[in-house]
Design a protein around this nucleic acid. Structure first.
Lengths: 210, 210, 210, 210
DNA sequence: TATGAATGAGTGTTCATTCAT
DNA sequence: AATGAATGAACACTCATTCAT
């Protein structure tokens, strides 16, 4: 009521609220589990608006996914790793990636859901390959600088490294619930998180060190 | 149907067919996306039988999950890593884990689905912690032997190592669809698979080597 | 359908149609026997609407029951029995009750169904005790006036009298089908109905007369 | 197991157990609400046996109903009311009827369920009209004797009296759950039961007294 | 720009009943 | 005489989506 009155009748604001709610719900329940009704309600919007602005649940998911990927890619670029010595740059990337997953837990479940559907929701995207290419290049540059400086060994594949940097953080976090049951530990305990990050930094640095 | 006529009226066989079909469907579409109707049809069974033997979709999922975990744990134990030198043992475990994921792609999506639901379907299991504990001990033994032999550095945490061994394979495979779009590569190309495995072995060995 | 096109898109009208159809079906087949599909169809509504407006079959039954009770209580209050001499008032109440059961046969089967479920569907209602209390008071007033006038004997319990007034009509009608088989009579023959009403009036008046 | 072993493999015993369990379940949940599975289990019998001995759920209900009616009719005959003075005989019948309903609560819900289905389950019965006729004759005899003795007024219809005797007890008990909610009383409180019986005796005696 | 009302096709689940031994 | 296995039709309930204003 009051909220509805003070809320600006702005198309952009409505779209943004819908996208935000959709990201939450898709992340929480997966694509199949999320409910259009619930998204509309959480967005303080009308269900009809979702179809007006996004066309379908699938297309809404597409946009949510694309936005999620562009967000992390953009945050990576903002790190300005080129200004750091190669070793520091790499450590910073590992740490950033880990922290990003911690701060944006939706990202992981969204990506999982996207892969369950065999990435069909982003298959048409052109922005995502472009931005990913930039990430790859960024790591390649760090590697090149490290090799030139003699601190990194040569012939480390940038893409494999990238994947591994993501993997060691992502896997720990996405599987934290089953992990907790299987190994009877609290994966999210602050000290446990610190230990994992340290382990991951060690893993990556040993992998590239000359 | 002819099949229906020749199919034996055996509770165990029917249960097994249902479990098999359920594993397929849960893996293919996630828990929420899988359809009880479809599972029944694929199992050449009646929907009623699913409820007769398993009680509910949720309990069916529980059993599928538990079975999936016990299968990999049992395969790991069958490796007889104790009979190998520590370095060989570790390499064999990395290779086995990778190959197991490749041969049993359902495992990964099942685990993802379990985690989306915050592991509630295995929370009550007692078999799983027990078998996981054995895996951990197995790796701990390898590490201990390696340290004693002077080939491994000391103070490598067995659980972290375990997680990392899984992570470097699991992540690559679970995210192969989005990865293919983002990085415009065929993650499943045989050569790409070989390269990834080699990279992973390198990662793990560098991590523990003295 | 033409009907569908001319039918106004009004929430209140739809709710009312659903309630009406539900009353019919619950009365005809009992709570367990009634079918949500059938109710929707008879209401010229969509099954989804039932869940939208009423939440569940059980809650729909609750509303139907509450409405049924409030209707008869309201009709009783409309009799203005206070304006009649006590004897006439009592006779009018007996006659009214009998006629109400005849005119609203759903009432009886609804109440039977409610009692089969041990009244759980109205257990939370606050309106019903209030309106019943008013009925009781109404009869108490008639009794008091009759005693004061010397036409009624003292110490007749109002609630017991109320129950008996209902009983002598209700039982005859609810058990008319088995009664017809057992005693090989047509319980609904107009003359039989008249005779029963006369008998009931006699029963009640003899019970209270001084 | 053990029970199954000690239980005699007797067709009659099995049928009796099934009938007993069916009476319970039909009484508890109505015809539509009762479950064949549950009846079989409660009878410690096999579901197949129900179909073997009774043919269908409907025919099982028929037998249960018929048995229930024959039981009360037989108990009424056992009262030997002919040996009592008419007033005592009538009072004893009222009291017996009340007590029978209290002791056999299934009877009431079975009859309600039979009537919900418009008595189709007993429509073919020939035993029931015959035994009901005997009940009617019994009351007629009491009335005749009472009139001859000058304690009863003439021209009281035996069937109407019969119905009323049943009504004043039956209604109170079948509607005890809704009654408890509406009038906020415990209908089954021992003192409440005594008061109701006394009220009913008074009602019937005043009705026939000369 | 926005919304409440409405819907058809499904979704997990349950049922009375029959088959095979 | 008895039973476990199996089934199709139906059940209450839910969903993404469209209509009417």
């Amino acid at each position: 009521m009051t909220q509805a009155m003070t809320r600006p009748r702005s198309a952009e604001a409505t779209k943004a609220r819908i996208l935000g709610a959709a990201k939450q719900e898709f992340a929480r329940l997966g694509f199949a589990g999320a409910r259009v009704d619930e998204i509309a309600e959480k967005a303080q919007a009308n269900k009809r608006m979702i179809y007006h602005y996004f066309g379908s649940k699938e297309m809404l998911f597409q946009l949510v996914l694309e936005e999620a990927y562009l967000d992390i890619r953009s945050a990576e670029q903002a790190l300005k790793l080129d200004d750091l010595p190669p070793l520091d740059a790499l450590e910073k990337l590992v740490t950033f990636t880990w922290q990003y997953y911690l701060d944006n837990p939706e990202f992981i479940t969204l990506v999982n859901s996207a892969n369950l559907h065999r990435a069909k929701h982003i298959a048409e995207s052109t922005k995502l390959p472009a931005s990913s290419q930039k990430l790859n290049q960024m790591v390649q540059d760090i590697l090149d600088r490290g090799v030139k400086d003699g601190v990194f060994r040569p012939n480390v594949d940038a893409l494999q490294l990238n994947i591994t940097i993501a993997a060691v953080g992502y896997y720990y976090l996405t599987n934290r619930h089953t992990g907790a049951v299987l190994f009877e530990r609290d994966y999210m305990d602050p000290q446990a998180l610190d230990e994992r990050l340290a382990f991951n930094v060690e893993t990556i640095l040993r992998l590239v060190r000359a």
